[in-house]
Amino acid sequence: MTILFDSFDTAWWPYLFMLLAASLPTEMWRWLGVAFAGRLRDDSEWILLARAIANALVAGVITRLILFPTGALLQVPVWMRLVAVAVSVGFYFGLVRNLFVAVLLGAATLTGLALLFSVPMT
């Protein structure tokens, strides 16, 4: 039997479903992380390997959030997202090292491009 979000018509079921289907599979990796780290010395080579894997994974998540997003961002064409990212990155690393301005500039570029080319948004 498949367990579904609307399997039970009670107030608490969505919460339990959420804990089982999303919290647990996220949390178990954190518990494993603490368990592994507890067995390692601070200068262990394994820690360096874990750092590298973590960085590669986080970079992978970021590219996904930009290229294969969810919600409203999905309706903005890929090239506009990439231009917005390029403007922000170029500003930050090339001109002024101000995070806040760089992030706002990227967001503004995206909004501007979408309005300029009148991208249909729902």
Partner: peptide, 16 residues
């Protein structure tokens, strides 16, 4: 459009 821009801010911030 603004909602889309909000969704772009997190990956942008991480990228920087």
């Amino acid at each position: 459009v603004v909602a889309a821009a909000l969704f772009l801010m997190t990956p942008l911030y991480f990228l920087l």
